[in-house]
């Protein structure tokens, strides 16, 4: 790798490293995907009435599965750095802390997207959805939702890096904060599957975009204060 910009260089190196570690162990991808599928299965059982599962529940189940299983990836993000105290080496490097944040968020986004790629067909089969009415917008909301989710989640995961009871505390503080994004994503997905008004869907998409931007900017700012100096 011969990237000149130091910021980009570090981000890429971190991402490359995380990706390689994940490819060797596959612990996050496997557990996350399987858990997401389980969540969907359990929910279909819960909503099963007379040989069919109402398609109305699809967006909710889909996004709950993503958020629940995505939490696994978030919990592992910095756990990996903490296990061998690598975080100290990362912090004691001529690197702006935000580069660490960006690369970690990027890795989480990629892992979550891979999981979603496995999840979508399963949801489509379980809920008897024939075809997607608006694939472009569906993909857009999927991306925007995942980005916002990972941006906030990575930040909280970094916050709790040394906390006891991290596995409990992370969802506890993370889910309320992410709630508006969840609402947006579920609503948008619902509209898309119901073949709803395009303007309405676009408005939800804009909303998700606004959420993403605000949290990425805040994340970059807060991350330095949280981890960089202590």
């Amino acid at each position: 790798m011969t990237v000149k910009n130091p910021y980009l260089r570090v981000t890429l190196a971190m991402f490359h490293k995380d990706f390689m570690v994940e490819m060797r162990s596959r612990e996050v991808l496997l557990t996350m995907t399987f858990f997401a599928i389980l969540v969907v299965v359990v929910f279909t059982f819960a909503f099963y009435v007379h040989g069919d599962v109402s398609r109305q529940y699809l967006p909710g189940v889909f996004w709950v599965a993503i958020i629940f299983s995505g939490t696994i990836s978030l919990l592992r993000t910095f756990e990996r750095e903490r296990e061998n105290d690598c975080i100290r080496a990362l912090l004691l490097s001529p690197t702006p802390p935000s580069a660490i944040y960006i690369s970690k968020t990027l890795a989480n986004i990629v892992f979550t997207l891979v999981m979603e790629a496995c999840l979508v067909p399963i949801v489509v089969v379980f809920f008897n959805v024939g075809s997607l009415p608006d694939p472009a917008r569906f993909l857009a909301i999927l991306f925007l939702g995942t980005i916002g989710f990972c941006a906030v989640g990575t930040l909280f995961s970094a916050m709790l890096i040394n906390a006891r009871m991290k596995a409990v505390l992370l969802p506890l503080i993370f889910y309320p904060v992410i709630a508006p994004l969840l609402i947006t994503c579920v609503k948008a997905t619902f509209s898309i599957f119901a073949g709803g008004d395009v303007d309405q869907i676009n408005r939800w998409l804009t909303m998700a975009l606004a959420f993403d931007m605000l949290f990425i900017v805040l994340g970059l700012w807060v991350f330095g204060h949280l981890v960089g100096e202590g």
Partner: peptide
């Protein structure tokens, strides 16, 4: 500032070369 502790601050899933490559990028 360099720190060498009894934890080596290395990634067990990677090889020695990969570890050092990563840190070389990180440290520029």
């Amino acid at each position: 500032i360099g720190w060498l502790a009894h934890q080596p601050f290395l990634y067990p899933e990677l090889t020695a070369v990969e570890n050092l490559q990563f840190f070389r990028e990180l440290y520029g």
